[in-house]
Structure formats: C-alpha cells, structure tokens
C-alpha cells in the first residue's frame, strides 16, 4: 500500500485552477476544430512545407543556442568577471523585449542597413533578412535566454569539487569541462535545450519582423497560422495550430522519457 498524502486545500484549489487556466484555451481550439476537413487540410503542401521549415529552423536555432549558450552559461556560473551582473541582466533582455521589437532590433543590427549587416552585405553580398538563416537567427535570439538561464542554474547546482578532482587527476579546465562538467549537467542542458526548442518553435514576432513571411523560405508554422487567420480562415488557423501542437507535444513527450527523467 502506498501512503496517501493529503493535499492541503489552499494548494489544491489554486493548482487545479491553474491547470484549468492552461487547458481551457486548448479545449477552445479543439472545440472549433473542423474534424471532417482535417485530413485534406493535412495533405495541403503548404502545411507540410511550413511544418518542415518550423522543425528545421527551431532545431537549428537550438543547436546555435547550445553552441553559444552553454559556454556563456559556464562563464556566468564559474568565472568572476567585472560586470557579470550586468551581463546576466542583458541576457534576460530578449525575455522582456516584445518579440516584434526584438525583430526590429535584429534588423537594425543584422539587416541590410544594420550595424553589422551592412558590412556583411557590402563585403559578402549576404544579408540575413528574408532567408531561412534569418529565421534561425530570430528564433535563436528569442530562445537563447531560456537555455542560458537553465544551464547556468544547472552549473551552479553542480558540485565544483568534481572539477577540482579532475584537475588533480591531470585534467585541464577545458578537459574537465568536456569530460566532467558537461556530463554532470547534461540533464540541465537537455531541459534547457527542450525549453529553447519549444520557444523557438512558437516564435512569431521576431521572425515575421526580421525574416519576413514567405512560404517555404521564412514562413514557419506560427506565421502560417497568423496568415491563415488574417485571411479570414479561422478554421484553417485552428487546424494549423493543432498540427503544431500535436507535433511538439509528441516530440517533447518522447524527449522527456529519454532525457528529462533522472534515474
């Protein structure tokens, strides 16, 4: 027999209300779903194209975030340097910045006339806006804080004495990072990566502002949903949302079983 824990009412009631609050809009979506036309909607090539683009860009954005975010998190967690508090505050900026403003900011920095973008354009004839790479950049910009914050948390929670032990065994700081620290905080990195991926997948404002909206190139699922709704096709928008939802929930559930459970 397992001992039953009595849940205090002051916790149970808000918890239940919170759940309802989260689930209710989902029920709203399901209620408006035109189930009969669902199969033919699914078969539309635009849907597959947007979905494929979304999966590709959010995965690439997550990889980008891992490459830059994990070292950044490590710096914040392990190295004392002047202005560390400021850097930490700066990293959270994309969290509070409205994504559309984030998109404008990206244009001003990386756009064809932007600070760095103009240099890229002049020297390499390359500009990010309106390209799939631009979508990846916009998504990474918005999702990076999620990764950095959770990985930094994991690093701070990890016992630094393991790194000391590695040092006494002849490991340089780099080796100790790759061979000891990374495996130790792997669950934290995985959790951060999933969060990052989910945020990138749902990204809309920065993407449409920075990368524009063109089917097959920059039109990800959220943009397709918006455009469908804009054209007055609410049912179509609902269907697209459901597809996005179903795919992401499936992937997250699969990852959760594989990565996010601690033994």
């Amino acid at each position: 027999m397992t001992r039953r824990t009595r849940v205090p009412v002051p916790l149970l009631v808000p918890a239940a209300l919170g759940l309802v609050f989260l689930v209710l809009p989902l029920v709203g979506l399901l209620a408006r779903t035109p189930w009969s036309t669902l199969p033919q909607r699914l078969a539309e090539p635009e849907v597959a194209m947007a979905l494929r683009l979304s999966m590709l860009t959010s995965t690439l954005a997550t990889l980008l975030c891992l490459v830059f975010g994990v070292p950044l998190a490590w710096m914040l967690a392990r190295v004392e340097f002047p202005g560390r508090r400021l850097v930490r505050a700066l990293i959270t900026v994309p969290l509070v910045l409205p994504p559309v403003v984030g998109g404008i900011a990206l244009l001003l920095a990386l756009g064809r006339r932007g600070l760095v973008g103009s240099w890229l354009d002049e020297n390499f004839g390359f500009s990010l806006p309106f390209t799939t790479a631009g979508v990846v950049v916009a998504e990474a910009f918005v999702a990076l804080p999620f990764l950095v914050i959770s990985v930094e948390g994991a690093l701070r929670g990890a016992d630094t004495r393991y790194e000391e032990a590695a040092a006494t065994l002849g490991a340089t700081r780099w080796i100790s990072f790759t061979h000891v620290t990374l495996p130790l905080v792997a669950p934290g990195i995985a959790a951060g990566g999933v969060l990052c991926w989910a945020r990138a997948l749902g990204e809309f404002g920065a993407t449409i502002t920075f990368a524009g909206n063109f089917p097959g190139v920059t039109q990800t699922m959220p943009l397709a949903v918006y455009q469908t709704m804009e054209s007055g096709d609410l049912e179509g928008a609902v269907v697209l949302s459901l597809i996005l939802l179903a795919v992401s929930v499936t992937i997250l559930a699969a990852l959760r079983d594989r990565w996010l459970t601690t033994p």
Partner: peptide, 21 residues
C-alpha cells in the same frame, strides 16, 4: 604550477568519484 601538472594525487573526503563514469 596548476593542479593538473602537479605530481600530487588526492583522495577527497567524500571521494568525488565521477558519477557518470
């Protein structure tokens, strides 16, 4: 000389065996 280059071995109080290895 940094720890990784010293001819010194340490047995730590709670051993600090790498849990993933």
């Amino acid at each position: 000389v940094p720890p990784e280059q010293r001819p010194i071995g340490v047995v730590f109080q709670d051993y600090l065996l790498f849990p993933h290895l």
